[in-house]
C-alpha cells in the first residue's frame, strides 16, 4: 500500500529540452476568438434577459404604466442602429473581397451611425426628463432609463470597437477577424434594441 507520493527520479522526471507544446485546435471549426465572442454574447443575452424579466414583472403587476415616448424618435433611433449594423455587414463583405480601404470606411461609417444613435438618445432623454418622465418619477420611468441606459452603454462600447477596428484596418495590421467580431457585436446590440423598441415604443 503506497501511501506516500513517489520521489523525484532524474531519469524520468527531468524536463526534456527544446520542446514547447503547441496549441491544438479541437471543437467546432471556427476561430477561437469567434467562438469566444459567441459565448460572451450568449452570456450578455442573459444579462438583458434579467433586466427584461424585471421589466415584465413590474409592468405586469402595475396598474398605471405610462410611457410617454415619441414613436418618431424611436423610429429614428431604430433606423440609425439598423443602418449602423448594415454598414458593418457591408464592411465585412468588402474586407472579404480584399478591399481593405473601403472596408475600413464602412466600419467608420458604422461607428459614426452608432454614435449618432447615442446623440439622438441623449436628446430624447432630455426631452422626456423635461416633460417629467424621470427614473424617480415612476416605475415605468425607472425601467425605461435602466433598459435604454444599459443598452446605450453597450452601443458606446460598439462605437469604440467599430471605430477601433476601422482605424486599425487602415494601418493594415488587423486581420479581418477583428472587424468581423466587431460587426457581430454590433448585430447583437442591434438585435437587443429591436426587442427594446418593440416593448417600450410599440407595445
Amino acid at each position: 500500500m503506497a501511501t506516500v507520493p513517489l520521489p523525484y527520479d532524474a531519469a524520468i522526471d527531468a524536463p526534456l529540452d527544446g520542446h514547447v507544446a503547441t496549441a491544438w485546435d479541437s471543437g467546432p471549426p471556427v476561430e477561437t476568438g469567434r467562438f469566444g465572442t459567441w459565448v460572451f454574447l450568449a452570456s450578455e443575452a442573459f444579462f438583458f434577459g434579467g433586466l427584461l424579466a424585471a421589466y415584465f414583472v413590474l409592468r405586469g403587476s402595475s396598474k398605471a404604466w405610462v410611457e410617454p415616448l415619441s414613436f418618431g424618435l424611436g423610429f429614428t433611433l431604430t433606423g440609425l442602429l439598423v443602418a449602423s449594423s448594415v454598414c458593418a455587414s457591408i464592411s465585412v463583405r468588402r474586407l472579404r473581397a480584399g478591399a481593405r480601404r473601403s472596408g475600413s470606411n464602412w466600419m467608420l461609417c458604422a461607428s459614426f451611425l452608432a454614435l449618432a444613435f447615442l446623440g439622438v438618445q441623449a436628446f430624447e432623454w432630455r426631452e422626456l426628463a423635461q416633460e417629467g418622465f424621470t427614473p424617480r418619477g415612476s416605475l415605468a420611468g425607472a425601467c425605461f432609463y435602466i433598459l435604454t441606459g444599459a443598452h446605450g452603454l453597450h452601443v458606446l462600447a460598439g462605437v469604440v470597437w467599430l471605430a477601433g477596428s476601422g482605424v486599425v484596418l487602415r494601418s493594415g495590421a488587423a486581420r479581418t477577424l477583428h472587424a468581423e467580431l466587431a460587426a457581430l457585436y454590433q448585430h447583437f446590440v442591434d438585435g437587443i434594441w429591436l426587442v427594446l423598441f418593440t416593448l417600450l415604443y410599440l407595445l
Binding site: V39, A42, S43, E44, F46, F47, F48, G49, G50, L51, A53, A54, I146, A150
Partner: peptide, 12 residues
C-alpha cells in the same frame, strides 16, 4: 455564464 449575468442585472 447563464446565471451570473442575471444577478448582475439585479445588482444594477
Amino acid at each position: 455564464l447563464a446565471a451570473l449575468p442575471v444577478l448582475t442585472a439585479g445588482g444594477v
